[in-house]
Protein backbone atom coordinates (compact mmCIF):
# COMPACT_ATOMS: atom_id res chain seq x y z
CA UNK A 1 0.00 0.00 0.00
CA UNK A 2 1.44 3.34 -0.94
CA UNK A 3 0.73 6.50 0.98
CA UNK A 4 -0.78 7.94 -2.17
CA UNK A 5 -4.20 9.36 -1.33
CA UNK A 6 -6.61 6.44 -1.45
CA UNK A 7 -9.50 8.61 -0.32
CA UNK A 8 -10.59 12.12 -1.05
CA UNK A 9 -10.73 14.86 1.48
CA UNK A 10 -13.00 13.67 4.32
CA UNK A 11 -15.33 16.67 4.28
CA UNK A 12 -15.83 16.30 0.57
CA UNK A 13 -16.55 12.59 0.97
CA UNK A 14 -19.12 13.16 3.71
CA UNK A 15 -20.95 15.93 1.89
CA UNK A 16 -20.55 13.99 -1.31
CA UNK A 17 -22.12 10.95 0.32
CA UNK A 18 -25.13 12.97 1.43
CA UNK A 19 -25.52 14.67 -1.95
CA UNK A 20 -25.03 11.38 -3.76
CA UNK A 21 -27.69 9.82 -1.55
CA UNK A 22 -30.11 12.59 -2.46
CA UNK A 23 -29.53 12.23 -6.18
CA UNK A 24 -29.68 8.46 -5.98
CA UNK A 25 -32.93 8.58 -4.02
CA UNK A 26 -34.59 10.80 -6.60
CA UNK A 27 -33.42 8.63 -9.45
CA UNK A 28 -34.46 5.41 -7.71
CA UNK A 29 -37.90 6.71 -6.86
CA UNK A 30 -38.32 7.80 -10.47
CA UNK A 31 -37.41 4.50 -12.09
CA UNK A 32 -39.10 2.40 -9.38
CA UNK A 33 -42.24 4.38 -10.12
CA UNK A 34 -41.95 3.16 -13.69
CA UNK A 35 -41.95 -0.45 -12.46
CA UNK A 36 -44.98 0.38 -10.30
CA UNK A 37 -46.95 1.80 -13.21
CA UNK A 38 -46.09 -1.19 -15.39
CA UNK A 39 -47.17 -3.54 -12.61
CA UNK A 40 -50.53 -1.79 -12.36
CA UNK A 41 -50.88 -1.97 -16.14
CA UNK A 42 -50.24 -5.72 -16.19
CA UNK A 43 -52.66 -6.18 -13.29
CA UNK A 44 -55.39 -5.06 -15.65
CA UNK A 45 -54.08 -6.17 -19.04
CA UNK A 46 -51.53 -8.89 -18.29
CA UNK A 47 -51.66 -12.65 -18.13
CA UNK A 48 -53.87 -14.33 -15.60
CA UNK A 49 -51.77 -16.69 -13.60
CA UNK A 50 -53.33 -17.53 -10.25
CA UNK A 51 -50.77 -20.33 -9.81
CA UNK A 52 -47.82 -17.94 -9.75
CA UNK A 53 -49.58 -15.64 -7.30
CA UNK A 54 -50.42 -18.54 -5.01
CA UNK A 55 -46.82 -19.74 -5.10
CA UNK A 56 -45.57 -16.27 -4.20
CA UNK A 57 -48.13 -15.99 -1.41
CA UNK A 58 -46.71 -19.16 0.00
CA UNK A 59 -43.12 -17.93 -0.42
CA UNK A 60 -43.80 -14.52 1.06
CA UNK A 61 -46.41 -15.36 3.65
CA UNK A 62 -45.98 -18.82 5.07
CA UNK A 63 -42.21 -18.60 5.14
CA UNK A 64 -42.32 -15.30 7.03
CA UNK A 65 -45.17 -16.10 9.37
CA UNK A 66 -43.13 -17.89 12.03
CA UNK A 67 -40.26 -15.41 11.83
CA UNK A 68 -42.46 -12.33 12.07
CA UNK A 69 -44.78 -13.76 14.75
CA UNK A 70 -41.87 -14.85 16.91
CA UNK A 71 -40.23 -11.46 16.74
CA UNK A 72 -43.52 -9.64 17.34
CA UNK A 73 -44.16 -11.80 20.39
CA UNK A 74 -40.91 -10.63 21.93
CA UNK A 75 -41.59 -7.05 20.88
CA UNK A 76 -45.00 -7.19 22.57
CA UNK A 77 -43.46 -8.15 25.89
CA UNK A 78 -40.70 -5.52 25.71
CA UNK A 79 -43.03 -2.69 24.77
CA UNK A 80 -45.52 -3.43 27.53
CA UNK A 81 -42.65 -3.66 29.98
CA UNK A 82 -40.90 -0.44 28.89
CA UNK A 83 -44.18 1.44 28.55
CA UNK A 84 -45.39 0.27 31.94
CA UNK A 85 -42.19 1.18 33.74
CA UNK A 86 -42.20 4.65 32.19
CA UNK A 87 -45.89 5.25 32.79
CA UNK A 88 -45.45 4.42 36.46
CA UNK A 89 -43.15 7.43 36.69
CA UNK A 90 -45.99 9.83 35.85
CA UNK A 91 -49.29 8.08 36.46
CA UNK A 92 -50.57 6.35 39.58
CA UNK A 93 -52.16 3.38 37.85
CA UNK A 94 -51.71 1.29 34.73
CA UNK A 95 -55.37 0.77 33.94
CA UNK A 96 -54.94 2.28 30.46
CA UNK A 97 -51.86 0.24 29.57
CA UNK A 98 -53.67 -2.49 27.64
CA UNK A 99 -55.96 -0.09 25.83
CA UNK A 100 -53.09 2.20 24.82
CA UNK A 101 -51.00 -0.75 23.68
CA UNK A 102 -53.82 -2.04 21.51
CA UNK A 103 -54.33 1.39 19.99
CA UNK A 104 -50.63 1.69 19.18
CA UNK A 105 -50.53 -1.81 17.72
CA UNK A 106 -53.51 -1.22 15.46
CA UNK A 107 -52.58 2.11 14.04
CA UNK A 108 -48.83 1.72 13.84
CA UNK A 109 -46.75 -1.00 15.43
CA UNK A 110 -48.30 -4.13 13.95
CA UNK A 111 -48.22 -3.01 10.31
CA UNK A 112 -44.93 -1.11 10.56
CA UNK A 113 -42.88 -3.72 12.38
CA UNK A 114 -44.29 -6.57 10.30
CA UNK A 115 -43.42 -4.54 7.20
CA UNK A 116 -39.88 -3.82 8.40
CA UNK A 117 -39.32 -7.53 8.84
CA UNK A 118 -40.93 -8.27 5.50
CA UNK A 119 -38.62 -5.69 3.92
CA UNK A 120 -35.66 -7.66 5.24
CA UNK A 121 -36.93 -11.16 4.74
CA UNK A 122 -38.80 -10.79 1.46
CA UNK A 123 -37.13 -7.70 0.00
CA UNK A 124 -33.72 -9.37 0.16
CA UNK A 125 -35.17 -12.59 -1.25
CA UNK A 126 -36.82 -10.92 -4.23
CA UNK A 127 -33.70 -8.93 -5.07
CA UNK A 128 -31.38 -11.93 -4.72
CA UNK A 129 -33.61 -14.02 -6.95
CA UNK A 130 -34.26 -11.44 -9.66
CA UNK A 131 -30.66 -10.18 -9.40
CA UNK A 132 -29.32 -13.68 -10.05
CA UNK A 133 -31.61 -13.99 -13.03
CA UNK A 134 -30.42 -10.61 -14.31
CA UNK A 135 -26.69 -11.38 -14.14
CA UNK A 136 -27.12 -14.88 -15.60
CA UNK A 137 -29.05 -13.34 -18.50
CA UNK A 138 -32.25 -15.26 -17.76
CA UNK A 139 -34.15 -11.97 -17.88
CA UNK A 140 -32.87 -11.27 -21.36
CA UNK A 141 -34.05 -14.73 -22.37
CA UNK A 142 -37.51 -13.83 -21.06
CA UNK A 143 -37.51 -10.56 -22.97
CA UNK A 144 -36.44 -12.34 -26.14
CA UNK A 145 -39.57 -14.46 -25.92
CA UNK A 146 -41.52 -11.19 -25.78
CA UNK A 147 -42.42 -11.55 -22.12
CA UNK A 148 -42.01 -8.53 -19.85
CA UNK A 149 -40.30 -9.61 -16.61
CA UNK A 150 -42.59 -7.18 -14.81
CA UNK A 151 -45.63 -9.18 -15.91
CA UNK A 152 -44.07 -12.59 -15.21
CA UNK A 153 -42.03 -11.89 -12.10
CA UNK A 154 -43.04 -8.64 -10.43
CA UNK A 155 -46.82 -8.74 -10.67
CA UNK A 156 -47.30 -12.03 -8.78
CA UNK A 157 -44.96 -10.83 -6.02
CA UNK A 158 -46.76 -7.50 -5.85
CA UNK A 159 -50.21 -9.03 -5.37
CA UNK A 160 -48.91 -11.67 -2.98
CA UNK A 161 -47.05 -9.15 -0.87
CA UNK A 162 -50.07 -6.89 -0.38
CA UNK A 163 -52.36 -9.75 0.56
CA UNK A 164 -49.86 -11.45 2.82
CA UNK A 165 -48.86 -8.28 4.65
CA UNK A 166 -52.48 -7.92 5.80
CA UNK A 167 -52.46 -11.49 7.02
CA UNK A 168 -49.06 -11.15 8.66
CA UNK A 169 -50.07 -7.93 10.38
CA UNK A 170 -53.22 -9.43 11.85
CA UNK A 171 -51.57 -12.67 12.97
CA UNK A 172 -48.38 -11.15 14.34
CA UNK A 173 -50.27 -8.25 15.92
CA UNK A 174 -52.45 -10.76 17.74
CA UNK A 175 -49.38 -12.65 18.89
CA UNK A 176 -47.79 -9.40 20.11
CA UNK A 177 -50.95 -8.47 22.01
CA UNK A 178 -51.21 -11.90 23.61
CA UNK A 179 -47.57 -11.81 24.66
CA UNK A 180 -48.00 -8.26 25.97
CA UNK A 181 -50.93 -9.49 28.02
CA UNK A 182 -48.78 -12.19 29.60
CA UNK A 183 -46.03 -9.62 30.19
CA UNK A 184 -48.45 -7.23 31.90
CA UNK A 185 -49.61 -10.03 34.15
CA UNK A 186 -46.05 -11.06 35.06
CA UNK A 187 -44.44 -7.64 35.50
CA UNK A 188 -47.28 -5.44 36.73
CA UNK A 189 -49.79 -7.98 38.01
CA UNK A 190 -52.45 -6.63 35.63
CA UNK A 191 -55.39 -8.95 35.11
CA UNK A 192 -56.11 -9.98 31.53
CA UNK A 193 -59.60 -8.58 31.94
CA UNK A 194 -58.35 -5.04 32.52
CA UNK A 195 -55.66 -5.39 29.83
CA UNK A 196 -58.04 -6.43 27.05
CA UNK A 197 -59.75 -3.14 26.32
CA UNK A 198 -60.47 -1.82 22.85
CA UNK A 199 -62.11 1.42 23.95
CA UNK A 200 -59.28 3.57 22.53
CA UNK A 201 -59.32 2.01 19.07
CA UNK A 202 -61.35 4.25 16.79
CA UNK A 203 -62.00 4.16 13.02
CA UNK A 204 -59.10 6.54 12.37
CA UNK A 205 -56.72 4.09 14.03
CA UNK A 206 -58.10 1.19 12.03
CA UNK A 207 -58.06 3.23 8.84
CA UNK A 208 -54.46 4.36 9.18
CA UNK A 209 -53.39 0.81 10.04
CA UNK A 210 -55.05 -0.49 6.88
CA UNK A 211 -53.65 2.26 4.67
CA UNK A 212 -50.18 1.52 6.02
CA UNK A 213 -50.54 -2.19 5.23
CA UNK A 214 -51.52 -1.38 1.68
CA UNK A 215 -48.74 1.16 1.17
CA UNK A 216 -45.97 -1.00 2.64
CA UNK A 217 -47.22 -4.12 0.92
CA UNK A 218 -47.00 -2.33 -2.43
CA UNK A 219 -43.72 -0.50 -1.84
CA UNK A 220 -41.62 -3.46 -0.68
CA UNK A 221 -41.96 -5.73 -3.73
CA UNK A 222 -41.69 -2.83 -6.18
CA UNK A 223 -38.51 -1.39 -4.69
CA UNK A 224 -36.92 -4.82 -4.22
CA UNK A 225 -37.81 -6.02 -7.68
CA UNK A 226 -36.47 -2.78 -9.08
CA UNK A 227 -33.18 -3.34 -7.25
CA UNK A 228 -32.95 -6.91 -8.54
CA UNK A 229 -33.93 -6.13 -12.13
CA UNK A 230 -31.32 -3.40 -12.40
CA UNK A 231 -28.44 -5.65 -11.23
CA UNK A 232 -25.60 -5.56 -13.74
CA UNK A 233 -22.18 -7.17 -13.70
CA UNK A 234 -20.51 -9.98 -11.84
CA UNK A 235 -20.71 -11.62 -8.49
CA UNK A 236 -20.72 -8.34 -6.55
CA UNK A 237 -23.79 -7.13 -8.48
CA UNK A 238 -26.25 -9.53 -6.88
CA UNK A 239 -24.96 -8.71 -3.41
CA UNK A 240 -25.22 -5.00 -4.13
CA UNK A 241 -28.78 -5.40 -5.44
CA UNK A 242 -29.80 -7.30 -2.33
CA UNK A 243 -28.32 -4.59 -0.13
CA UNK A 244 -30.14 -1.89 -2.07
CA UNK A 245 -33.43 -3.75 -1.78
CA UNK A 246 -33.23 -4.01 2.00
CA UNK A 247 -32.20 -0.40 2.45
CA UNK A 248 -34.72 1.07 0.03
CA UNK A 249 -37.66 -0.94 1.31
CA UNK A 250 -36.86 -0.29 4.98
CA UNK A 251 -36.46 3.42 4.34
CA UNK A 252 -39.72 3.42 2.39
CA UNK A 253 -41.52 1.81 5.32
CA UNK A 254 -40.21 4.41 7.75
CA UNK A 255 -40.97 7.33 5.44
CA UNK A 256 -44.47 6.06 4.62
CA UNK A 257 -45.10 5.44 8.30
CA UNK A 258 -44.28 9.04 9.07
CA UNK A 259 -46.26 10.43 6.15
CA UNK A 260 -49.39 8.39 6.86
CA UNK A 261 -49.28 8.93 10.62
CA UNK A 262 -48.73 12.64 10.17
CA UNK A 263 -51.49 12.86 7.58
CA UNK A 264 -53.97 10.94 9.72
CA UNK A 265 -53.27 13.07 12.74
CA UNK A 266 -53.38 16.33 10.82
CA UNK A 267 -56.64 15.43 9.04
CA UNK A 268 -58.53 13.49 11.68
CA UNK A 269 -56.61 14.32 14.84
CA UNK A 270 -59.55 16.17 16.37
CA UNK A 271 -61.79 13.21 15.78
CA UNK A 272 -59.46 10.72 17.44
CA UNK A 273 -59.81 10.67 21.21
Amino acid sequence: MSDAPVVEHPRKRVLGALGQAGIETTRTVGSAYGVFVRTLYYLVRGRHEPGAIARQMYEIGNRSLVFVSLVMGFVGVILVYQGGVQTQRVLPDLSQLGATFLELLVRDLAPSLAALMLATRVGAGIAAELGSMAVTEQLDALRLSAADPVDYLVKPRFVASIVMLFVLTIVSGTVAYACGLVGARVFFDLSPRSFVDSSLVDPVDLGSGLVKCLAYGAAIPILSAHAGLSAKGGSDAVGAATTRAVVHSSLAVIALDFAISFGAHALFGGYSR
Binding site: F67, V75, M117, T120, R121, T136, S235, G239, A241, T242
Partner: peptide
Protein backbone atom coordinates in the same frame (compact mmCIF):
# COMPACT_ATOMS: atom_id res chain seq x y z
CA UNK B 1 -22.94 -14.65 -7.92
CA UNK B 2 -26.28 -16.24 -6.90
CA UNK B 3 -24.47 -17.58 -3.83
CA UNK B 4 -23.49 -14.07 -2.81
CA UNK B 5 -27.13 -12.97 -3.10
CA UNK B 6 -28.26 -15.90 -0.95
CA UNK B 7 -25.65 -15.10 1.68
CA UNK B 8 -26.69 -11.47 1.90
CA UNK B 9 -30.30 -12.54 2.20
CA UNK B 10 -29.52 -14.98 5.01
CA UNK B 11 -27.31 -12.45 6.79
CA UNK B 12 -29.94 -9.71 6.94
CA UNK B 13 -32.66 -12.10 8.09
CA UNK B 14 -30.51 -13.56 10.85
CA UNK B 15 -29.31 -10.09 11.88
CA UNK B 16 -32.86 -8.78 12.16
CA UNK B 17 -34.06 -11.78 14.15
CA UNK B 18 -30.94 -11.62 16.34
CA UNK B 19 -31.39 -7.91 17.00
CA UNK B 20 -34.98 -8.35 18.16
Amino acid sequence: APGVGRSVNAAVVVSAAGVF
